[in-house]
């Protein structure tokens, strides 16, 4: 009797542990697939995750337009359809927050100036959260280096606000988060973002916020 029951027990044990192992293998595979796929999806869904260089309020991805762009940068472009600016063409600077680090908000007014990094031309454009140029009744979403009015020293001030301003002014959309992109075309800074120091990039100062 006793021997028989022991025999039955040792027969049942391997079966139970095999089932447990199978469950654990399935569990490990599911967790691996879930975590791996979702993290890859998440990290390639927004900005380029690596290689950012900060300068003042602005962020630059100096290698995004080069031959040695990292796989994450390529994946982000593949998902968004983005066409990066090549290193030999120019450099892209993006700002989603002001100098104090507060996110750019369409209900606030901002003063941008007064210098820009050296470049043959530059453009400064205002976008909504999804990467579309802002739509305002005035139909203008950008300024170029040739259009902007400068003072006697060659410095400029651009105001972003909902209400009309004298001088260089870009109309803000009604509401929502916005971000600014400055593109330097044919710039010596594009070959090395190290040349881009915080004093040469325009400052972004928040003036006042409406309701």
């Amino acid at each position: 009797m006793r021997r028989a029951s022991r025999g039955r027990l040792s027969e049942r044990r391997p079966g139970a542990s095999a089932a447990a192992s199978a469950v654990l293998v399935v569990y490990a595979l599911l967790v691996a697939a879930g975590l791996g796929l979702s993290s890859a999806y998440w990290i390639t869904g927004g900005d380029y995750p690596f290689g950012a260089v900060r300068s003042g309020a602005w962020t630059v991805w100096p290698r995004a337009g080069s031959r040695d762009a990292d796989p994450y940068t390529r994946a982000v472009n593949a998902r968004t359809g983005g066409i990066p600016l090549g290193v030999g063409e120019g450099l892209v600077l993006r700002a989603a927050a002001d100098d104090a680090g507060r996110a750019l908000d369409a209900r606030c007014a901002y003063r941008i100036g007064t210098t820009a990094p050296q470049a043959r031309y530059w453009t400064l454009a205002l976008y909504d959260e999804t990467g579309r140029p802002v739509e305002t009744p005035l139909g203008r979403a950008s300024f170029s280096s040739a259009e902007i009015l400068r003072d006697a020293n060659g410095s400029f001030t651009l105001v972003l606000s909902r209400e009309a301003q004298s001088g260089n002014w870009l109309m803000m959309p009604e509401a929502g988060a916005v971000n600014l992109v400055m593109r330097l075309y044919d710039s010596p800074a594009s070959s090395g973002a190290a040349a881009l120091d915080a004093r040469s990039v325009p400052s972004i100062v928040r003036l006042e916020c409406g309701s």
């Binding site: 654990l24 595979l29 967790v31 791996g36 990290i43 796989p71 390529r74």
Partner: peptide, 22 residues
């Protein structure tokens, strides 16, 4: 052990996915 294996595998899946996306 299964959890540790899952995390290692997840890393491999993550890298393979990023490389495969383009």
């Amino acid at each position: 052990l299964a959890t540790i294996c899952a995390f290692v595998l997840a890393g491999i899946v993550h890298l393979a996915t990023v490389l495969a996306i383009p």
